[in-house]
Amino acid sequence: MSDVHADSQTGSAPIEAGFGDYVALLKPRVMSLVVFTALVGLLVAPGAVHPVVALAAIVFIALGAGASGALNMWWDADIDRVMSRTRRRPIPAGLVEPGEALGLGLALSGIAVVMLWLASNALAAGLLAFTIFFYAVIYSMWLKRATPQNIVIGGAAGAFPPVIGWAVATGGLGLEPWLMFALIFMWTPPHFWALALFMKSDYHLARVPMLTVTHGRRATRAHVLVYTAALAPVAIGAAFTGIGGAVYLAVALVLNVVFLRGAWAIWRRTEAQAEADGYATEKRFFRFSLWYLFLHFGAFLAEAALRTAGLALPLTGG
């Protein structure tokens, strides 16, 4: 669009994307979670990685996550236009053309995978490529609009970063990275269903088959409780592996008791009670779920630091 064209058409400031709008396509808040969990996966793995290689690997994993975010925004622009939570994203806001988001997503995907391969190894790059494909195609294009299990299965995409981080450090895989994967995978459903409980009309209007829409709110509350109960043994069980220890066990016990109490409170509530206090319990549970994940991975990191300092209290037999 030329200056003259823009000015003659509207007579006022034309809408044109700034650099920040393209950054917003990469979902920076999701990227921060990816960076943190991938970094933990990389740092708790046995074996040392050169700091520059580690930095480059994390940057390219984050870039891959951002690329899949751009592809998601390209595909979901019609949904984003309807939901109040996503209406201000760059495409529905008219700042970025859908084709630009597609181009950016594809280009960054290629760059991220190739550069991660060059920086680390083929396994890590292959896992990153699969993660991008899983999020953009399996989750965004297929599951999200097809089944209420969308975020259960789609949660795998968000669970891969620590596995990729581990693969960068070791060139292989083991039980521990899959436990970190399981922790995020099992955490995702209660986290998003709590959000869906207080964002009811959004998913309804967008015709996204969230559990709240297809099975009702009572069933969603029960699912939050069941998944939270299933998550607890996974989270606590990690204490008895090579990446856990006494500190992690203490942290995990406290966090899971609090999380279970929250899920129990959500299950006991009726819609009338939730409406009356503006979904305070559900919102509190959602906020705490972010801390829950952050502190578990922080505890993994603390255990790794203690092991390095020779101060760890391992709970494994070996």
């Binding site: 200056d3 823009a6 400031a13 034309p14 044109e16 994307a17 700034g18 650099f19 920040g20 393209y22 950054v23 520059v52 290689v53 930095l55 480059a56 940057v59 550069m115 060059l118 920086a119």
Partner: peptide, 28 residues
């Protein structure tokens, strides 16, 4: 004009990103 400010910001952003990429690959 606001349009020029946005374009300048975009150009600077792309420039900084490319320089950061070069530094990262060199360090690697």
């Amino acid at each position: 004009h606001e349009l020029h400010r946005r374009r300048a910001g975009r150009n600077i952003g792309v420039g900084v990103t490319l320089v950061a990429f070069i530094v990262l690959v060199f360090g690697l």
